[in-house]
Amino acid sequence: MVGRLIYLMGASGAGKDSLLDAVRGQLEAQRCRIVTRVITRSAEARGENAIAVSAAEFDRRRRDGDFAMSWKANGLAYGIPKEIDAWLAAGSHVLVNGSREYLHEARKRYPDLLAVLLQVEPEVLRARLLERGRETPDDIEVRLMRNSRFASNAGKGDENVLCLDNSGPLQDSVTRLVQLIGSSAHAFD
């Protein structure tokens, strides 16, 4: 049996990293591996558990074919290690923290991927982004508008995106994510 790629995406501040940390044990018990991304940012930067590399190192790894998928967003480059292909071929399911803008390309490479959009009520997202203090209020409003446009198209056409609200308690989102993955067609046969 071949594994399935679960492609989790959502706005910055939606709580993807918190959700991944909280759900890790439950998904690993269901033979689902959570990928550590390679990102061009400082190792001291707060946020997700990632492998931080310089832009030159990232480009070298991309040229050497070290990534199954890679993209640029918000001034950073992101890579998903090519090991996921071996994990999928061995029957493990693989969860990646993906980019909404890269979803179409990801579907070309992994047509059966399960796309999950982590959504948050705009007021909650605004408050989280303000609390982080990384962006200006104007930058936050741009993020909120971009998020609203993507969310309004989710699940339409050929995108086939499952939506998961993360506006409430984190444990509720953990439970719903495990249920979504477990009940989706061919997810955990």
Rank of each mutant, 00 (worst) to 15 (best):
H104A: 11
V116S: 00
L164C: 04
G13D: 05
A56K: 10
V35Y: 04
L103D: 09
D85T: 04
V174W: 08
L113F: 07
V38P: 01
R134I: 09
A77E: 04
A77N: 12
N160I: 02
K82Q: 07
L144E: 10
A52H: 04
G13L: 07
G13N: 07
Y110C: 10
M69K: 04
G25R: 12
G65H: 13
Q171M: 14
G10S: 09
D85Q: 09
P111Y: 02
A86E: 14
G91M: 11
R63K: 14
G15I: 00
R132H: 09
A14L: 03
L130F: 03
V120C: 12
L170R: 14
I51G: 05
R128W: 01
A50L: 01
V96A: 06
L95I: 02
L144G: 01
V142S: 14
S92H: 15
W71D: 02
A14W: 05
A187Q: 00
Q26W: 10
N97H: 06
S152F: 00
R132T: 13
N74S: 15
D165N: 14
A185V: 04
A14M: 00
K72L: 09
K72N: 11
R134D: 06
A52S: 14
R41N: 05
L164I: 04
G98T: 05
G15C: 00
E141S: 09
L103G: 01
I51K: 08
L8F: 09
A29W: 03
R61D: 06
A106Y: 01
P122C: 06
G25W: 08
S70C: 15
R149M: 06
V174Q: 02
G75I: 01
D17P: 05
D138R: 04
G10A: 13
R61N: 06
E141Y: 04
M9F: 11
L170W: 02
D172T: 15
V120D: 05
S184M: 05
K72F: 01
R107W: 09
V2W: 01
A29H: 05
T36H: 10
V38C: 02
F150K: 06
T36A: 08
E57H: 10
S184G: 07
R128N: 01
L125T: 07
A89N: 11
V142G: 07
A55H: 15
N153M: 15
N49D: 04
G65R: 10
R33H: 01
N147V: 00
V178P: 00
T40N: 11
D158M: 11
F58K: 02
L5I: 08
G25L: 12
R33W: 03
V124E: 13
I51C: 06
R60C: 09
A89Y: 05
Q179M: 12
I6D: 08
R24V: 04
P169H: 15
T175M: 11
E135H: 08
A115E: 08
G25D: 14
L170S: 07
Q119P: 08
